[in-house]
Amino acid sequence: MLSNPRIDLGYLLLRWQDENDPTPSLDELEARYSNEAVIRQLRERNEQGISP
């Protein structure tokens, strides 16, 4: 069974980075934003390899 090409493209673009793209770390995001629930969720997803 083949996967959906749109999903494959979306995942590729989600992870796409150009050479000079800024990528804030989770620590930087946590310092900027006070929503602890969202930061916790991002950290959990990052452990699974799904975070930006």
Rank of each mutant, 00 (worst) to 15 (best):
M1G: 15
M1C: 14
L2Y: 12
L2C: 05
S3R: 07
N4C: 12
P5F: 00
P5V: 02
P5H: 03
R6K: 15
I7L: 15
I7Q: 11
I7M: 06
D8R: 05
D8S: 10
L9E: 02
L9H: 03
L9M: 05
L9N: 03
G10C: 10
Y11D: 02
Y11N: 02
Y11I: 02
Y11E: 04
L12I: 09
L13S: 05
L13D: 04
L13V: 13
L13Q: 13
L13T: 10
R15G: 08
Q17I: 08
Q17W: 11
Q17G: 06
Q17T: 15
D18L: 09
D21V: 08
D21P: 03
P22W: 08
T23Y: 09
T23L: 14
P24I: 04
P24Q: 05
P24V: 04
P24L: 09
S25H: 09
S25M: 09
S25L: 10
L26F: 00
L26A: 01
D27K: 13
E28Q: 14
L29N: 00
L29F: 00
L29C: 00
E30H: 01
E30P: 01
A31R: 05
A31M: 03
A31G: 02
Y33S: 01
Y33N: 02
Y33I: 02
S34R: 13
N35K: 08
N35E: 13
E36M: 06
V38R: 05
V38Q: 07
I39Q: 01
I39M: 03
Q41R: 13
R43G: 04
E44L: 12
E44R: 13
R45I: 11
R45C: 11
R45F: 13
N46S: 15
N46E: 07
N46K: 13
E47M: 12
E47R: 15
G49E: 05
I50S: 06
S51T: 06
S51E: 14
S51C: 06
P52G: 11
